[in-house]
């Protein structure tokens, strides 16, 4: 039986209306639907005139749809400390998060840019030296419960990770899985080249040793790449370079799987009938396509809920990211993360 998790004051979620390929229209459509269908307030940030022209063509509720003007857009290679970066839609959106006018941020800008700007604009949680960018991916059913998606971090915020960073990210990832996926004791694994404690680079070996002794973590040891989609852990921790490669590989495989199924469905009646017979398998494909609409994955470690959606996001994905952001706020994700990394009162 499902019950609503809406509790406490309705959150405001700021939506960066630029960055992705389908922006700003996808952001505007998502914000309009959110304003109509939920109690969440969406704050669109971008060129006010351009956004307004799109907004008035939607069905929306102004009581839950606000707009803040940002004169520019973040460009590749922009210095995060520059005036242009601060005046970009992402910079203004982060400022709204910093001042408390919004409780969460959703953006489709490239994750690495978001991580760099967010680490500059927002304070890190006590005990955190580097924030970690997460991604979600579908797995075979896991022992921990019903969430079809597992978490991998870091996927690009910091290409090189120390043992300390890997341990901190393990705690952050576990806290996220507890709060958002409702997994009581999420299993956490390190991505490595072998299952033995001594396998892998020095940082991984050292992190393995420390996590194995950590009573707050359900440590599942090392995980090989092939074991990731099998769902052998709820949270997989790795450095940003490896994580980014794995996450993009998943994106590519998902696209191929969905395209292959679509082609088979359209090409021949007999194949279509075959797919019907393979309904359970088709269910997995459907799950893969939902993965594409999941919405966003968090940047963990900063004081604020920051969700990064794929740059290819359609409006439904942005909408789901806003819903997920609201869920994170309602469940006090930031407070839980703070407690997980050692802060007595969360933040």
């Amino acid at each position: 039986m499902l019950r609503s998790t809406r509790q406490g004051p309705a959150p405001s979620v700021v939506v960066d209306a630029y960055g992705g390929e389908r922006m700003p229209l996808a952001a505007v459509r998502a914000a309009a639907r959110i304003s109509r269908e939920t109690d969440v307030t969406a704050i669109l940030v971008g060129d006010a005139r351009e956004l307004q022209e799109l907004v008035v063509r939607q069905s929306y509720d102004p009581a839950r749809l606000r707009m803040v003007h940002a004169p520019g857009q973040l460009r590749h290679g922009e210095d995060v400390g520059s005036t242009e970066a601060a005046a970009s839609s992402l910079g203004v959106a982060l400022d709204l998060l910093r001042t408390g006018e919004a409780q969460a941020l959703v953006t489709t800008a490239p994750g690495e840019w978001v991580a760099r700007l967010a680490e500059e604009a927002l304070p890190l949680l006590p005990g955190v030296r580097e924030a970690a960018l997460c991604a979600v991916y579908p797995t075979l059913p896991r022992a921990s419960g019903r969430d079809p998606f597992a978490l991998i971090l870091d996927v690009g915020a910091h290409h090189v990770a120390t043992a300390q960073a890997l341990v901190t990210w393990a705690r952050l990832g576990a806290a996220y899985a507890r709060v958002v996926s409702g997994v009581a004791e999420p299993s956490v694994a390190l991505l490595s080249t072998g299952s033995d404690a001594a396998d892998g680079p020095t940082a991984v070996v050292e992190a393995h040793e420390r996590l194995a002794r950590d009573p707050t973590i359900a440590f599942a040891g090392n995980l090989l790449g092939v074991e990731i989609p099998r769902g052998e852990a709820d949270v997989v921790v790795t450095d940003g370079f490896t994580g980014h490669t794995v996450a993009r590989l998943f994106d590519g495989l998902t696209q191929i799987t969905v395209e292959a199924a679509r082609h088979a469905w359209q090409a021949r009646l007999s194949w279509r009938m075959g797919l019907r017979l393979l309904s359970r398998g088709v269910g997995l494909l459907r799950r893969a396509s939902e993965f594409a609409e999941y919405g966003g994955a968090p940047l963990l470690g900063v004081r604020g809920v920051v969700l990064v959606a794929s740059p290819e996001s359609r409006s439904r994905a942005v909408e789901n990211a806003v819903r997920l952001a609201a869920k994170c706020v309602r469940r006090d994700l930031v407070g839980e993360l703070g407690r997980a990394v050692g802060g007595r009162d969360g933040i």
Binding site: L2, R316, N320, L324
Partner: peptide, 14 residues
């Protein structure tokens, strides 16, 4: 109805 994923994001099982 909204996609099952949205339901998951907004609700939980008792």
């Amino acid at each position: 109805d909204l996609p099952s994923l949205s339901q998951f994001l907004e609700a939980e099982e008792d």
